[in-house]
Amino acid sequence: MGSRMGRLVPSRVAVYLWKRLPIPKRWRSKIMWYANDRFLVAVLGLIVNEKNEILLLKHTYRSEPWGVPSGWLEYEDPLKGLEREIYEETGLSVSVKNVLNVKYAPNPHRMDVYCVGEFTSGEFKKSAEISQYGFFHLENLPEGLSRYQRGFIVDFLENRIPNR
């Protein structure tokens, strides 16, 4: 049962009440919603162009400004959420094909959903969050890219099957 509720009511008591109280299903759902901890879900994109270069964005608010396109999901499909985030922040259109990996990240507590896709069209427009963009070959990744993202990108590009 919910971890917040578990701090207040022992688990076996909560389960006993859950099974025996005549509560309508919609109320049970609300109880579960409020009783459970929630955390963020981020979506990150490994977006390539026809030259197999990776799309990187220069963020205005990060100490290591270069990174893959990313954003927070808003109760939506991760693939569509990434497409929305990239378009909102850059004006670029992409086609996100599938989820590549999901990892837990501790600060802040969240799930990172890594997706892979392709650049389709669009003209770059600066935003409050993004000042520049570029497509980069593996041997030409920019300074200011975190070691973690650099490693993930290198692994992805080295193991990518062309035209997939």
Rank of each mutant, 00 (worst) to 15 (best):
L17V: 10
I86E: 02
L56H: 03
E129I: 12
T60E: 09
N36P: 00
N98T: 10
W33F: 14
R20M: 06
G91Q: 07
N107T: 10
Y104A: 12
M32F: 14
G122Q: 05
E53L: 04
E83Y: 00
S95E: 07
G117H: 03
R110H: 12
W66M: 07
D37R: 15
I130Q: 06
N107F: 05
P24D: 08
I130P: 05
H109F: 04
S93R: 15
A105E: 11
Y61G: 02
P69Y: 00
N52H: 12
D112A: 03
P22I: 04
W33K: 14
E76I: 09
L79Y: 04
H59Y: 15
S95M: 06
Y61I: 07
L56M: 07
Y114P: 00
G117M: 00
N52Y: 15
L82F: 09
S70C: 08
L55R: 03
N52Q: 14
M32S: 14
E74R: 15
P65A: 13
V94L: 05
T120N: 09
K125S: 12
V94F: 04
V68H: 03
E50M: 04
V15R: 14
Y16T: 13
R20K: 15
H59F: 15
E83N: 02
Y75G: 10
G91R: 03
R38M: 05
A42E: 09
L82I: 08
G67D: 05
P78D: 00
E118C: 07
E53W: 01
N98L: 13
R20N: 11
L56R: 02
W18T: 11
W72F: 15
K58E: 10
F124W: 03
W27N: 08
E123F: 10
P22E: 09
R38Q: 08
A105V: 06
I23W: 04
Y114N: 01
G71C: 02
T60H: 08
Y34A: 09
V43C: 05
V43L: 11
S121I: 02
P78K: 13
Y34W: 12
I47F: 04
N101L: 13
R84P: 00
V43E: 05
S63C: 01
V99N: 01
L79E: 00
K126L: 11
W33M: 08
V116P: 00
G81A: 00
N107I: 06
R38S: 11
S63F: 09
E89I: 14
